[in-house]
């Protein structure tokens, strides 16, 4: 090994890289994909409930959504992990659900704006054709609403990806946790944490360029 006082050691870098990629990054990716799926589905459900449920339901519902959105993910993660760990084996699945539900509250806002942007005439046409309410949502409103929301939803997926290191607090072995473990084992943090950051950058930057292009195309 190169002397400890050189600022970058390739030996350490190559020693930690496989763990980062094949263990940490894998879990980070799994958490992001599943968390995003949860948020995509629940977000739409929340947006529709807020729009169509009677006031007595939608108002308290809105409070809950806002509360989740305005409180830290970290606190929610630790809380959920402590409460649920007797019933759920894996802290990864708890983490995925908390992440998914947290981002549900953001994505619901995106869907809401998308639904608002569907012209009123479309609703009127659906009424005029006496389409059932379910069918109006499914066949008329949602398909038009979703088109405009794709870039914003994508941006949230990326930002969820970059927030997966918060899962560190419930001991999920995602990318940063693997890096941190290596660092504390060898008392050598430089390579592991720097590489973890670069992996985040290498994955998120091209994706965000892709979304920016999509945004221009849809606009």
């Amino acid at each position: 090994m190169t002397p400890q006082n050189s600022w970058w050691s390739w030996d350490h870098a190559f020693a930690v890289l496989p763990d980062l990629l094949f263990e940490g990054f894998k879990i980070t990716l799994v958490a992001t994909v599943l968390g995003t799926l949860i948020a995509l589905v629940l977000g739409l459900v929340v947006a529709i409930i807020r729009r169509s449920a009677p006031r007595i339901i939608s108002t308290p519902f809105t409070w809950v959504v806002e509360f989740i959105r305005m409180t830290p993910l970290v606190v929610q993660l630790v809380f959920a992990n402590l409460v649920l760990s007797p019933y759920v084996d894996s802290s990864l699945s708890i983490g995925i659900w908390v992440l998914g539900i947290h981002y549900t509250t953001y994505m619901a806002e995106v869907y809401r704006a998308g639904i608002d942007s569907v012209p009123k005439g479309q609703w009127e046409a659906a009424t005029a054709l006496s389409l059932p309410r379910m069918r109006t949502w499914r066949a008329v409103v949602v398909p038009q609403a979703i088109r405009n929301t794709v870039p914003a939803l994508g941006n949230y997926a990326i930002s969820m990806f970059k927030e997966t290191p918060f899962l560190f607090v419930i001991y999920v072995p995602e990318l940063l946790n693997v890096a941190q473990n290596y660092g504390s084992t060898y008392f050598r943090y430089t390579e592991a944490i720097t590489l973890a950051g670069l992996i985040f950058l290498a994955a998120s930057y091209p994706t965000s360029l892709l979304i920016r292009r999509l945004e221009k195309k849809l606009a």
Binding site: L176, Y189, G197, L198, L201, Y205
Partner: peptide, 24 residues
């Protein structure tokens, strides 16, 4: 801007707390 947006808050925090003191 792209660097600090892309590398994740927690990684940056850990970098400043753990890596920076270890640099020669």
């Amino acid at each position: 801007v792209e660097f600090f947006r892309g590398t994740s808050l927690v990684v940056q925090l850990f970098w400043l707390a753990f890596v920076l003191p270890q640099l020669p």
